[in-house]
Amino acid sequence: MTTTSPAHTLRALPDLDYYDCRSVLLPVDITTLDAWNIMTAESGLFMRLAFRMRDAISSLFGVKRIGGFSGARRETIHTGELLDFFLVEHSAPDMLVLTERDRHLDVMICLSITARVLTITSSVVTHNVFGRAYMLPVGLVHKLIINSDLRRLKRKLEGQ
């Protein structure tokens, strides 16, 4: 499902090195933090291995290890706090903006909800060859991961 979204991105679309926007119609009303909590509650084997591989390779290039998603449920979150490895740039019931920035690339993930449609918008700006090389496999896999997260979220909400 593709919709128009009030999502934040790092830059205007033509100036991004990576952009992806995916949406799902939610069966019930939830907040963006609720959606985050559900989607990151259980990291499957694939995700745990992907984060381990990411950390092992990236650390060779001076990139800090991120370890993946903790699965820890948050009841509240405020601008300036960390949500796993992401910095919270904005937090409201209908929008959650998260960033991770380093010398190789900047990443922004924006979760927004409008009329019960959750949209996850991902934008990336790369700064060097390592950042561009990193995004080649990550860009492809990211779409599959987000699609899987959105399907799992919808199934869990339908089961409530």
Rank of each mutant, 00 (worst) to 15 (best):
Thr2Ile: 15
Pro6Asn: 15
Ala7Leu: 07
Arg11Ser: 05
Ala12Asp: 08
Pro14Thr: 01
Pro14His: 03
Leu16Arg: 09
Tyr18Met: 07
Tyr18Gly: 10
Asp20Ile: 04
Asp20Ala: 03
Arg22Asn: 05
Arg22Cys: 05
Ser23His: 07
Val24Met: 07
Val24Gln: 12
Leu26Tyr: 11
Asp29Trp: 06
Asp29Asn: 06
Thr31Met: 01
Asp34Phe: 01
Ala35Val: 15
Trp36Met: 13
Thr40Gln: 08
Gly44Glu: 10
Gly44Leu: 03
Phe46Gln: 06
Phe46Cys: 02
Arg48Val: 13
Arg52Cys: 08
Arg54Gly: 00
Ser58Tyr: 06
Ser58Asn: 10
Phe61Cys: 10
Phe61Trp: 02
Val63Asp: 04
Val63Tyr: 00
Val63Leu: 05
Gly67Lys: 04
Phe69Ala: 06
Ser70Trp: 05
Arg73Gln: 11
Arg74Ile: 09
Glu75Ser: 02
Thr76Val: 15
His78Lys: 07
Glu81Pro: 10
Asp84Leu: 13
Phe85Ile: 10
Phe85Val: 12
Phe85Met: 04
Phe86His: 15
Leu87Ser: 04
Val88Leu: 00
Glu89Lys: 12
Glu89Arg: 13
His90Ile: 06
His90Phe: 08
Ser91Phe: 03
Ser91Gly: 14
Ser91Val: 04
Asp94Arg: 14
Met95Tyr: 11
Met95Arg: 11
Val97Asn: 00
Thr99Asp: 07
Glu100Ala: 00
Asp102Ile: 04
Ile109Lys: 06
Ala115Lys: 12
Arg116Gly: 03
Arg116Phe: 05
Val117Trp: 08
Val117Arg: 04
Thr119Asp: 02
Ile120Tyr: 01
Thr121Asn: 07
Val125Ile: 11
Asn128Arg: 09
Phe130Cys: 12
Leu140Val: 07
His142Ile: 02
His142Asn: 05
Leu144Thr: 14
Ile145Arg: 06
Ile145Thr: 06
Ile146Gln: 00
Asn147Trp: 03
Ser148Gln: 13
Ser148Val: 10
Lys154Cys: 14
Lys156Phe: 12
Leu157Tyr: 14
Glu158Leu: 11
Gly159Asn: 13
Gln160Thr: 15
